[in-house]
């Protein structure tokens, strides 16, 4: 006989997994990638335990029929892939900052859509500060309230701070606090942080010179991708730039952008027909 050790959460049943997948997709458009399905148990165990529930099936039972929206939010949060790093894709942020500075030399407006815990907009803020360039607006949004709260605090563990951040930049822009590293207020203050859902909410107001939407569209259903790209297109000024993740493309997803001839790796908004 095998006894389940007390305190251990049994694996979720297929029905529960399906319910979780549709909860996540209906809220965020994100689909659970088959190669990440194994993470569901790990991701939700702490939440089940925190609520005194013995299994993930019970946890999902508690939010069925919209009965507990706050708990459903926390479940969605825990299921989202929020992997990120500073200066992700070596050299990409610096190159983008240069491109943006050249099309909007005065005071560029930038939107980071799906900013996770803030490493991407902070990297941009660093890149602009080091260029000595002004920034009019840097608006960073994410569907996850927990991620936005963390981003706003600007606090990173030793593991997080080392991912992609050169040591001299770490010393210049962060302060050590115990084992954590905290972004200088000067840097965090440049960024407006906001919880916002790309598949439901309106884009932040005004026209942007550039939008970053990296590693967000990847797990969206194709029609959802087109919708989000339309939203982004509507928020860019003519000739504005879009940056996607290294493995992502607009090709076949949207007719509103073309790969930029001037700026490698970036897309340009086509003039409206």
């Amino acid at each position: 006989m095998t006894a389940v050790p007390s305190g251990d959460t049994p694996y979720a049943t297929p029905i529960t997994l399906t319910a979780l997948a549709s909860l996540l997709e209906s809220r965020t458009g994100q689909r659970i990638a088959p190669n990440r399905a194994w993470r569901i148990d790990t991701a939700l165990k702490p939440l089940a335990a925190e609520n005194g529930l013995g299994s993930i099936d019970e946890l999902v039972g508690h939010v069925r029929g919209g009965s507990n929206p706050a708990l459903a939010d926390r479940i969605v949060d825990a299921l989202l892939n929020q992997e990120t790093s500073f200066f992700r894709d070596a050299g990409a942020i610096e190159a983008a900052a240069e491109a943006i500075a050249s099309i909007a030399p005065g005071t560029p407006r930038i939107w980071c859509a799906g900013c996770a815990t803030g490493q991407e907009p902070l990297s941009l803020a660093i890149a602009f500060a080091e260029r000595g360039g002004a920034l009019a607006d840097l608006i960073a949004t994410d569907v996850s309230a927990a991620a936005i709260a963390r981003a706003r605090a600007g606090r990173f563990t030793q593991f997080e701070i080392q991912r992609g951040l050169p040591i001299r930049r770490m010393l210049r822009w962060f302060e050590q606090d115990g084992d954590d590293w905290v972004a200088q207020a000067e840097l965090v203050r440049r960024i407006v942080w906001r919880r916002s859902n790309l598949v439901v909410d309106a884009a932040p107001g005004g026209r942007f010179d550039a939008v970053f939407c990296r590693n967000v569209l990847f797990y969206l259903a194709p029609e959802m991708r087109t919708r989000v790209l339309d939203l982004i297109a509507g928020s860019l000024r003519p000739g504005g730039l879009l940056m996607l993740g290294a493995g992502e493309t607009v090709i076949g997803q949207s007719g509103r952008f073309v790969p930029s001839k001037r700026f490698r790796g970036l897309y340009e908004l086509l003039p409206a027909r």
Binding site: A90, F159, R163, G164, P166
Partner: peptide
Amino acid sequence: YVMKPFDRETLQSKLQI
């Protein structure tokens, strides 16, 4: 500079830098 403990991603990103 890498602060121990480190993992693959950390080491790789520092080597890229």
